[in-house]
Structures are given as C-alpha cells and as structure tokens.
Design a protein around this nucleic acid. Sequence first.
DNA 1: GTAATACTTGGAGTTAACTCAAAGTCAAGA
DNA 2: TCTTGACTTTGAGTTAACTCCAAGTATTAC
Lengths: 124, 124
Amino acid sequence: MTVKEVSEKYKITQDTLRYYERVGMIPEVTRTSGGIRSYQQKDLDWVELAICMRSAGLPVEVMIQYVQLCKEGESTIPARLELLQKQREALHMQREQLDTTLDRLNYKIKKYEKAIDTGKLNWD
Amino acid sequence: MTVKEVSEKYKITQDTLRYYERVGMIPEVTRTSGGIRSYQQKDLDWVELAICMRSAGLPVEVMIQYVQLCKEGESTIPARLELLQKQREALHMQREQLDTTLDRLNYKIKKYEKAIDTGKLNWD
DNA sequence: GTAATACTTGGAGTTAACTCAAAGTCAAGA
DNA sequence: TCTTGACTTTGAGTTAACTCCAAGTATTAC
C-alpha cells in the first residue's frame, strides 16, 4: 500500500504518517527500490498501534521509546513491560477523571433540562 | 483568597489562573479596591469547574463559549444545554476510545508477562 | 516612611503534535 | 520520450494551552 492508501484506510493525513515515521513513533516503513513507501502488513500493524495509542492521548514520546526498545531486541522485554504498565496506569487515572467530569456534566445537564421544563431555574 | 492561595488549593499555577480569567474561561474574579484578585466562593466554583473540564480534555475554547452564554442571561439556557450535551457526547466517545486502547494495552502486557514467565515469546 | 514581598499587566516564549511549502524524484499512460 | 500526478525530503509554520518575563503597583512588616 502507498502512503495515500494508508492515509485513506486510517483517515489520517499523509503528512502525519510520514511524521510518525520520521520521529520514530513507528519503525522505518518498507520502501520500493525507488525509495517510495510500500506499507506491508507489519508496517500497517505499527501504524494501527500508533493511531490507537495516540487517540487515547498517549504521548508520541512514549511510543518512540517503545519502538526504540523493540528495535533493541528481546533483552528489553522487561523494560517494555514496565513502560506499558505505566501507560495503563496513566490511562486508568485519565478514565477516572473522565468519569468525574461526566458526572458533573450530567448534573448540570439535568439542571438545565429541568429549568427548561419548568420554565424556571432553581439554582444551588 | 489570593491568587497564590487558590493556586495552592487547586495545585495549579498562578499564571494559569490568570490566563483562564484573561481568555474568559472563567468570569472576571472579584478584586480588592487596589485591583488585586480576591477570590470569593463563586469565583472558586468557576475555577473548580474550569479545572474539572480541562482535566478531562475539554477545550478551553468550549469553556469560553459557555461562560459567555452564562453572562448573556437566562435566554441562553437552551444553547448552554446543547453545548453541554455535545461535550458529554464527546467525552463518551473519548471514553470508548480509552477503553479500546486499554484492552489493547492489557493484551500486550499479558503477552509480555507470559514471555518473561516462560522465558520465550510466542508472538502472533 | 521604607524595605521587602506579593501582586498587577502586556506581551513574548515554549511545548507537543502536527501541517504546510518548496524543490526535486519516481512511475504510469499517450 | 514526454507529461502528469504522486511521491520524496528538509525545514519552516501553525495551533492549543500554557509559561515566563519585565516593568510597574499594592500590601505588609518594621
């Protein structure tokens, strides 16, 4: 697949795909003899992983570290595990905060709905 | 409360507090005759709301709009409701994405744990 | 009253994560 | 072969959300 096809498949710009590769957030993509990107399944797997992590707010920097560790071989498996566990912890906290905010939003929304319903506000 | 006290209470910098006020993410804070901020309960409520929304990733711009609507009076209640509902929807989607990513992280973590446990990787 | 400290503003600087532009190279069709 | 359009890189520009700085004013301690 060309960069254009991949960008369409994942709804992400070509610039972003090239950027991810340039900064090392995904390993070097397979190229044709002419130097043009030709994404293979393993390249697509990396792209998908990168997009998934980014869409949850995981920093680019963290993915760069992970990719770096993967390149260094199996000896880095404990380090990779630790990195992933740390990120999971961060996402759990993020989730809790999200729920707290959702509760607050729901509370306010109910207030407004009632206000519109009864025609008056009885604010706290 | 002074800006310093508020910054300590909510673990946020004074600069950020002033920034929030300057851009209109919270209404103008009560001042002393000398022009120094003196946060009252209602000011603190706004600060707390702003921090809560921001910590869930809700854009500053959205809070600015909300504050603006509040200033314009009760006629904007339907608009405020709509704004809040839209943000709730966005947070719900964000939450789903977070869960998807967490699933993926958990899968990888289990793989690595097993690899360390058995001393070998049986990758997919 | 004066020194020290905390506050004020306006505006410039920073960071993360893209996003765009320019100038050149590659590949497919007439 | 020539043209057209997609691809390449390097490097600069943009956006959101702060973050910092300088110069000045207010408050508090002595």
